[in-house]
Design a protein around this nucleic acid. Structure first.
Lengths: 223, 223, 223, 223
DNA sequence: CATGAATGAGATTTCATTCAT
DNA sequence: GATGAATGAAATCTCATTCAT
C-alpha cells in the first residue's frame, strides 16, 4: 500500500510539483489517500471532512465536487482499498512449490501481509461495524475473481491429485480460516494485548503465531 | 445475552412505574442496557445521546448524572459487557472429559458462544477501532483471572501429562487461535459474505466451520 | 393579523418582559411570527434561517429544537397563517341583512380583508408555487369547516327561498369567484401596475374595484 | 407553448450536432427554453444554475456568457415569456361579433388561454413574489401597447355606442376582472383544491366556471 | 466559443452538554 | 433526583461564479 502511493508520487514528480491546478486525477488521488488514512483512523462518523481537507492539497469544496458527500468519499476509499489489496495479493509467487509448501506459504504470507496492511484491516473492521452497507458491488469484487481463491483452488486440486490432501474441503473455507487467523492478529491486538499482555506481539511471539497458522491449516488439510 | 436482557426487561415490568424514581440501580441498569445496544449498533461517535435517552425510561440528565459524559457511559458499557461475557464463559462444564475431548469442546463452545454474543463482539470490534483506549483497567480484567485461560491451562497440562499433547505451547496461544477463528466468524460476516456469498453462514456451513475449528486446534496440539 | 400579534404581546406584558427564558410558548410564538414575515417576504428557498434567527429573541438552535428543520418551520408558519385567517373571517357580522345585501357584504368584506392580509396572501402565493406540497392536512382545514363556505351556503339558501337568487350555483363556486377577484388584487399588484399603472390601486381605484366585485357577484346570482 | 418547444427541438435534431458551435442564436434559445421551465418550476432562488446547464445542450459557461448572471437570465426568461404571451393573445378573432358576444368571447378565451399557459402563469406568480423587481421596462410592455386592452377598448366603445353597455367603466378595469378570474383558476389550484376538493377542476367544473366568468363580466357591463 | 475544474462564502443542520425550575 | 428547555461550537453541504486550457 505504502509502496503504491510512493510510486504514484514519483510519477507525478515529472510535472511541476507545486501546481496541482487542473490535475483532476492528482486531486482525486490525493484526496483518496488522505481520506483513507483518516477513515481508517477514526471511522466514518468519527472523521471530520474538515480534517481531511486540511491534510489535502485542495479544499473541502473539492471533496464534495469529486465525491458528492462524506459517504460517497468513504465508499470510494473502501472500494479503492479493496482494489489495492487485491493487487498486493497477486504478488505472491508459488511456482514450483509442492502443494503442502505452497499452502503453508499462502497461509504465512497472508499472516504477514495482514500485518503490513493495518490501514486496510481497519477499514474492513469499520465497514463491518457498518454491516457492509458501503461495500462496492462491482463484479471485480466478487469471490470468483479473487486471486487468493484461485490460488487456493489450484493448490488444493494439486494436493488432492497428489493424494496428500484429504477431500471434502473448499478453497473458500481455507481462505476463511487463513483470513480469520491473520485478521484477528491485527484487528484485536488492542483489546487482546490489554488483557493478556504484549508478548504475542513482539517479533518472537509473532513468528510463533505465524508458524502455528501454517501448522493449523496444514493440519486441517493433510490426508 | 439476549435471554439475560429479556429477563431483565420482564423483571422491570413487574414493578410499578413510579418506583423508578426510588430505584437508582434500576435506572443505571436500564441506561446501561439501552446504551449497550446503541453503542453496539452504531459505535461511539455514531451513537446519539439523545437517542439513548429516548429509549430509556429516564431522561438525558440522568445519563450525565450517573456516567458523567458520553465517553464515561461508553466505558461503563464496555466494562459491563466484558463482565457479562466472563460469566457466560464460566458456564462451560468439562468434568470428566479427556484432554482432547475437552479441548475440542472448548474450541467449539467458544465458536458457538461468539455467535450468540453479537452485541458483545460488536463492542469489541468498536473498541479495537478505538485502539483499546477505553478498556477497563481492573485486575479482574487481567488474563490471569480469565476462566478461559485457566481451563486451557488445565486441559493442556493434563494433555501433556497424558503424553497426547506436544510441548511448547501456551494457554494464551491456544486461546488466541480459538478466539481468532470464532471471532472472525461473527465480526467479518458482512464483508466476507458480500464477497463470497452466504453459504458459509447457513446452518450447514456453520457446522462445517465449527468442526474445522476443533480440528485445527487439535491438529495444532496433538503430539 | 397585526392585531392578534399585538394582543399576544400585551398578554405577555404581565410577565417579566426581559426574561424569555424557559418560556417555550413565547419562544415558539416569537419564532413563528418572525418566520412568517420572512417567508412571506422571500419565499421558502429565498429565506435564510440565520436571518430569521437574528430577528428572533432566541437563537438559530432553538428553531431547530422546536421545528426540526426549515421546511418544518415553513409548514408551521403556513398552518398557523391559515388558522389566523380563518379566525379573521369569523369576525364578519351578517345578522339581519337581506340575502342580496349579505352577499354583497361578504364579497366586499373579502375584498377588503385580502388587502389587509398581504402577508397571508403572499404565503399562499408562495405555497402555490410549491404546488401545495406543504399544506396542512388537518380536518379543520377542510372546506366543510370553513365559516366562509357556511356563510355563503346560508345566504344562498335564504336567497333561493326568497326567490331572488337563481338556482344551480354552489357556495364553493361563489367563494371561488369572490376569492379570485379579491386575491388577484393583492397578488398581482406588482406586475399589473408595472404594465398598466397604479391608478387602480389608489383609494379611488380600489373602491371602484370593490364595488365591481359586489356587482359581479350579485349579477351572477340574481334571478 | 409546449408545441413551440417541440418543434424547436425537432428542428434542432435535423442539424448536425457540431452546428451548435456556429449557432449562437440556437444556444441562446435553448438556454432560455430550459431556464423558463426551470424557473417556472422552482422559482428564482429555488432553481440551480447547474441544473439548467445540465439540461442544456451547452455548458454553464455559456449561460454566463450570454446572460451575465442568474438574475440576468431570469430577467430574460421573464421578458421573453411576456413577449410570447402577447403573441398568443393576438390570435383572438372577433370580427363581426356584437359587443356582448365579443366581450364574452374575450372573457372565456382568456380563461381558456390562462389554463393553457401554466408555465407563464407560474412565472408571473414568481415575479409577483419578487414584487415585480425584474419586470422589463420596454415600451412594448406598456399597457397601451397591449392588444388585449385595445380589443376591450374597441368592444366597450362599440357597446356604449350601441347603448347596450353602461357608461363609466374602463378597458383596464375589465381586463383586470377578466384576468383575476382567469388567473386565480390556474395560480391557486393547488391550495384551493387541497381545501375544497378537485371538483371545480374537472372538465365539467371548468366549463361551469368559464361560463360564470362570461356571465359576470357581461353582468358588470350590461346597461 | 467551449469545457471541466476550481472556489469562497455562506447555508443548513447536528450534537454533547448545561441550565432553570 | 428529575425534567424539558436551552445553547455554542462545529459539522456537513450548497451555490453562484470564475479560472485554466
Amino acid at each position: 500500500m505504502e509502496k503504491a502511493q510512493r510510486s504514484q508520487a514519483s510519477e507525478d514528480a515529472d510535472r511541476p510539483r507545486r501546481s496541482w491546478k487542473q490535475d483532476p486525477d492528482g486531486v482525486r488521488t490525493n484526496i483518496l489517500q488522505v481520506a483513507r488514512e483518516a477513515f481508517a483512523l477514526r471511522g466514518l462518523s468519527g472523521t471530520r471532512i474538515d480534517e481531511i481537507a486540511a491534510r489535502t492539497s485542495t479544499s473541502k469544496r473539492m471533496i464534495y465536487y469529486y465525491f458528492g458527500d462524506k459517504e460517497g468519499l468513504y465508499r470510494e476509499v473502501l472500494a479503492d482499498a479493496y482494489r489495492r489489496t487485491r493487487e498486493a495479493e497477486d504478488a505472491l509467487e508459488l511456482e514450483g512449490l509442492a502443494p503442502e509448501e505452497a499452502l503453508r506459504k499462502v497461509a504465512e504470507f497472508t499472516f504477514d501481509n495482514h500485518r503490513r496492511s493495518q490501514v486496510f484491516i481497519r477499514l474492513v473492521m469499520i465497514e463491518n461495524v457498518h454491516e457492509g452497507r458501503h461495500m462496492p458491488d462491482s463484479a471485480e469484487m466478487s469471490g470468483e475473481n479473487s486471486s487468493a481463491i484461485r490460488m487456493l483452488e489450484d493448490i488444493y486440486a494439486r494436493g488432492l491429485e497428489a493424494g496428500v490432501f484429504r477431500a471434502g474441503l473448499s478453497a473458500v473455507e481455507l481462505h476463511w480460516h487463513i483470513s480469520a487467523l491473520s485478521y484477528f492478529n491485527v484487528s484485536n491486538r488492542a483489546t487482546f494485548s490489554h488483557i493478556f499482555g504484549e508478548q504475542l506481539f513482539d517479533e518472537k511471539g509473532q513468528s510463533i503465531l505465524r508458524r502455528h497458522v501454517g501448522d493449523m491449516i496444514l493440519g486441517l488439510v493433510l490426508a
